[in-house]
């Protein structure tokens, strides 16, 4: 049977249901366990093989040698596409995906993040993995 206003029952029911949407900046839905968010780098694990640099599709990561067996990474979040190929390519698990997804900044220069064993040079010490 054809009749107009077929959705009326469902629509009235949802008047008494909890809204499906959230008031976003105040309430957030949780990220899944293996979310591919911001990439962080553990300098102590890096062996400087440059595999991540080679495989990055958007050339967002740079690994520099600071001292013998000490490396620092510069990740450009403006370029990063969060594919986590670098995490997969790394033989020593020195790179890791986090659940961090709110990465917008007002200052473009803050998108370049340096992870270094030297805490003075590291620009991302306040963020937790």
């Amino acid at each position: 049977m054809i009749r107009p206003g077929k959705m009326i029952k469902q629509v009235l029911q949802s008047l008494f249901m909890k809204p499906a949407t959230l008031l976003y900046p105040f309430k957030k839905s949780p990220m899944p366990e293996h979310f591919r968010g911001e990439i962080i780098f553990h300098p102590e694990l890096c062996i400087g093989c440059q595999m991540c640099v080679r495989d990055c599709p958007s050339r967002a990561i740079k690994i520099k040698k600071t001292e013998d067996n000490k490396f620092e990474a510069e990740i450009d979040l403006g370029k990063c596409i969060y594919c986590a190929q670098c995490v997969m390519s790394c033989p020593k698990k020195a790179l890791e995906s986090t659940k961090e997804f709110e990465l917008a900044v007002l200052d473009k220069s803050k998108l370049k993040i340096i992870f270094s064993a030297d805490p003075k040079k590291s620009s991302d010490s306040q963020k937790t993995p």
Partner: peptide, 8 residues
């Protein structure tokens, strides 16, 4: 059901 019955 909606697509086959809602007249409008």
């Amino acid at each position: 059901d909606i697509a086959t019955k809602e007249t409008t």
